[in-house]
Design a protein around this nucleic acid. Structure first.
Length: 808
RNA sequence: GGGCGCUUAGCUCAGUUGGUUAGAGCGUCUCGUUUACACCGAGGAGGUCUGAGGUUCGAGUCCUCAAGCGCCCACCA
């Protein structure tokens, strides 16, 4: 018997393997579908990578994304599709700018010290460094994406796409500049869209303030309003009550003298006022509250801005100007108390908006900004999902999607930051031009940049060359799958759908797969760098290997469902990798050499029951894994593979194979390697490469010597699916376990157990079958006696587990 | 205020369209160093599937109600 001469380390060492393997893949060129050995007519399968921020370190959220998308890409590639996965990074406007500003702060500088141009140079430098890092980290995850198609959102071609999109929207009247109440971050010095506001519950107070009437009578001297923001009272221009509220009927059209400011303001009626809340009378501050702004518009109220963009009180605040908001609040309360105008104070919890990038409390103020009129875009986007052109997995998120789309409000797309796509808008005196810089002198470009998510929303087609009509665009658009965490369904997915439908009149992708978020194992909270929760994928990779991490992120999880990730789980899959490694090690060390011989055995008779069983199990597995992957039941597919490899292939079949002259172990292994490859690309490829090296694979023309990553996905052989053999084998497993227990616990000899086995079981259906097996077992006993001594030793030690089956 | 999710073994979680005796990993207990693997092998214990009602021949799965926990959305003065 010729043995395979492949020496493997006793344990699989991912640290020594992964980097080498990734380089091998890159060298092969197969990440680029154009290099795949496929006819041009083959169906494409494409997927767009959710853009990691160019500033970011790889975190577990990225790991999940990379794992799932790589899994899908590798699966489709092996199935013979032109699989394209486009990588990219996002300039992440505010986030990046914040990072660089922090760096500057350490040097005691601000961006204003540098000025726009120098600051941007500095950000680009920062970007280059971070970009390299994040790319290498993505590679560490094993991502088989096409780096030749890599894009950065500020690349020239993508910027061109952004401009084109802007111009089209503007010309169609869907982009406008308007004055609105917006969310302002005093730290980042920019406006934020509604989506970029994170609300947090905060304990605060509800202050009841007396507003004196101008003309007081003996009964009524004041009207009391309740507020959480007493400092905004300086900008009040009315007090409003609900029209149905009878309590205030008499006071209508009366004037109030606003305390501290001594300004006369009216009492008005508005349906937006909730008579149940507070006193039923509301102070109206059109400059600092969205509802108040609306009320102000309808009642032609004056708008007085008392809080500035710097987060301090403005000149309008009179004696309180230049104070910080909290200081002003303190002073105002004090003053009101002095004047006897503070009725009472109650504890109150309400949610306060914070900047999603820097965490600072936001201010509502009036500002002129650019908006996208979104309703018309949303209408089409709703239809696309409703008609099933786009499918969202899990389905329940479709409801969330519809709900958001129906209530969508205009999208504020301008930002007062420097890092980003500058709006293609030009000013000269009072003239305005949109698009390219007009000829002639004196045109100045808008200083605002676009919301980072504006460029992301074009991603699926801008990376394929749009607005040019490229081959890639016609080939790969729409993408097959969009995969991302559910947390950016609105930020990104919804907007891509709207933009693609509007600009291309085509859906951007057919399926949206939303994965759950990884939670901190201890607290069960969302991972947060600032809180120090969650695990660091880079450390985990170093410790357990990428394959183990990938498995832990897919197995035992479901679409859309958040999960805690424990280190022990990853260790478990590290062990599984090692198991697979040792399966290969064992096979290489003991089996007859060539795959083709193993395959040839399939035609020879007789093959043992164990052989029939494992072949049946394998072929069923091929069917179910393929089906599960196609239906996005990724966890299920992985779990079945794990179960098969460890508890059927290794625990039973390989044990049995030790006593069989011929075995299909090699054949099973080569199938398993391919099935597992999308889940554990590194270790499977490494084992495959070892096989190739000794030429074992070369002897099989069907397999060739190409890397495992483009080996054909296994196809089920229906004639090997053998329900009878499986049933029979299961019965024997059952008997063997019974024999063991009988010996260990009740000291019953195997022969005696076999005799009584059928009686102890109550299921009648199995009886005939069992009888037959038992008869055969009796014969087996004789054969065992005549075995070679070497085998006998094994038999004794394994308490008859193996031999019975292989001889049947 | 509207919506969603979760509750299954000690822990973390699977459980497609309702269908044999509800699964896995880790942990735990017993035994074991044998031609791969102690990152191992063999075996065991452990669940009235949150509660109550309903539909059904049959419910972890479908319906109604309730409880606890978590999340999302909203112009919560």
């Amino acid at each position: 018997m010729k043995k395979l001469e492949i020496a493997l380390e006793k344990a699989y060492l991912p640290q020594k393997t992964e980097d080498k393997i990734y380089k091998l893949w890159e060298k092969s060129g197969y990440f680029n579908p154009d290099n795949l050995p496929l006819p041009k007519t083959v169906k494409p399968h494409s997927i767009a990578m959710p853009l990691p921020n160019v500033t970011g370190e790889l975190h577990l959220g990225h790991s999940v994304t990379m794992t799932i998308e790589d899994l899908l890409t590798r699966f489709r590639r092996m199935q013979g599709y032109r699989a394209l996965w486009i990588p990219g990074t996002d300039h992440a406007g505010i986030a990046t700018q914040v990072m660089v500003e922090k760096e500057l702060a350490k040097e005691g500088k601000t961006k204003w010290d540098l000025g726009r141009e120098k600051f941007l140079k500095r950000v680009w430098k920062y970007k280059e460094k971070s970009e390299k890092k994040i790319i290498s980290q993505i590679k560490q995850m094993g991502a088989s994406c096409d780096w030749s198609r890599y894009h950065f959102t500020l690349d020239e071609d993508l910027s061109e796409a952004v401009n084109q999109a802007f111009v089209r929207l503007y010309k169609d009247g869907l982009i406008y500049k308007g004055e609105r109440i917006i969310n302002w971050c005093p730290r980042c010095q920019t406006v934020l869209s509604d989506l970029e506001v994170t609300y947090k519950e905060e304990k605060s107070k509800l202050w009841y303030i007396k507003y004196p009437l101008k003309i007081q009578n003996s009964k009524i001297k004041t009207i009391i309003v309740a507020t959480t923001r007493p400092e905004t009272m300086l900008g009040d221009t009315a007090v409003a009550v609900n029209p149905k509220d009878k309590r205030y009927k008499k006071l209508l059209n009366k004037k109030i003298v606003l305390p501290l400011m001594k300004r006369e303001i009216p009492i008005i009626q508005d349906f937006r006022v909730d008579p149940e809340f507070g006193t039923g009378a509301v102070k109206v501050t059109p400059a600092h509250d969205a509802t108040d702004f609306e009320i102000g518009q309808e009642h032609n109220l004056e708008t007085i801005q008392v809080i500035g963009k710097d987060g301090k009180m403005t000149k309008e605040a009179g004696e309180f100007s230049d104070l910080s908001i909290s200081k002003a609040r303190e002073k105002i309360i004090e003053e009101l108390k002095k004047q006897g105008l503070l009725e009472k104070t109650e504890d109150y919890t309400h949610s306060v908006g914070h900047c999603y990038r820097c965490g600072r409390t936001l201010e509502s103020l009036i500002s002129k900004q650019w908006f996208v009129k979104i309703k018309p875009l949303a209408k089409k986007a709703i239809e696309a999902v409703k008609k099933g052109k786009i499918k969202i997995i899990p389905k329940r998120f479709e409801k969330v999607y519809f709900n958001w789309m129906k209530n969508i409000k205009d999208w504020c797309i301008s930002r007062q930051i420097w890092w980003g796509h500058r709006l293609p808008v030009w000013y000269k005196n009072k003239k305005l031009a949109v698009g390219k810089k007009p000829k002639g002198k004196g045109w100045i470009q808008e200083t605002d940049t676009l919301d980072t998510w504006f460029s992301s929303s074009l991603w699926t087609f801008s990376t394929l060359g749009w607005p040019k009509k490229t081959a890639d665009l016609s080939h790969f658009h729409p993408a097959s799958v969009m995969e991302t965490g559910w947390d950016i369904l609105f930020f990104w997915v919804a907007r891509m759908i709207m933009m693609s439908l509007y600009l291309l009149d085509e859906i951007p992708f057919k399926t949206v797969y939303l994965h759950g978020l990884v939670l901190d194992p201890k607290t069960g909270e969302k991972m947060s760098k600032t809180k120090g929760t969650g695990l660091d994928p880079l450390i985990l990779i170093d410790k357990y290997g990428t394959d183990a991490l990938r498995m832990s992120l897919v197995l035992g999880t479901t679409a859309g469902q958040d999960f805690r990730l424990y280190e022990e789980k990853i260790a478990g899959y590290r062990n599984f990798g090692n198991k697979l490694w040792n399966i290969a090690r064992y096979i290489f060390g003991t089996m007859e050499t060539h795959v083709d011989k193993s395959l040839a055995l399939l035609r020879k008779k007789p093959i043992s029951l164990a052989d029939k069983w494992i072949l049946s199990r394998l072929n069923k597995l091929v069917v179910s894994v393929t089906n599960d992957l196609e239906k996005f039941r990724l966890g299920k597919a992985g779990e079945d593979l794990y179960e098969f490899v460890w508890h059927e292939f290794a625990d039973w079949y390989l044990e049995i194979s030790k006593l069989q002259r011929k075995s299909f172990a090699f054949y099973i292994l080569s199938s398993v390697l391919r099935l597992l490859h999308p889940f554990m690309p590194f270790i499977t490829e490494e084992i495959w490469q070892k096989i190739c090296k000794v030429g074992a694979a070369r002897t099989c023309p069907a397999l060739g010597v190409e890397p495992l990553m483009i080996q054909p996905w296994p196809k089920p052989v229906k004639k090997f699916i053998d329900a009878k053999a499986e049933k029979e084998f299961k019965t024997i497993q059952d008997i063997i376990i019974g024999i063991r227990n009988a010996r260990a616990k009740h000291k019953i000899e195997p022969a005696k157990f076999i005799e009584t086995y059928a009686v102890t079981k109550t299921k009648r259906k199995l009886l005939d079958e069992q009888k037959e097996i038992i008869e055969r077992l009796a014969r087996v006993k004789l054969e065992i006696k005549s075995k070679k001594p070497r085998v006998k030793k094994a038999i004794t030690l394994h308490i008859n587990k193996i031999d019975i089956i292989c001889l049947l």
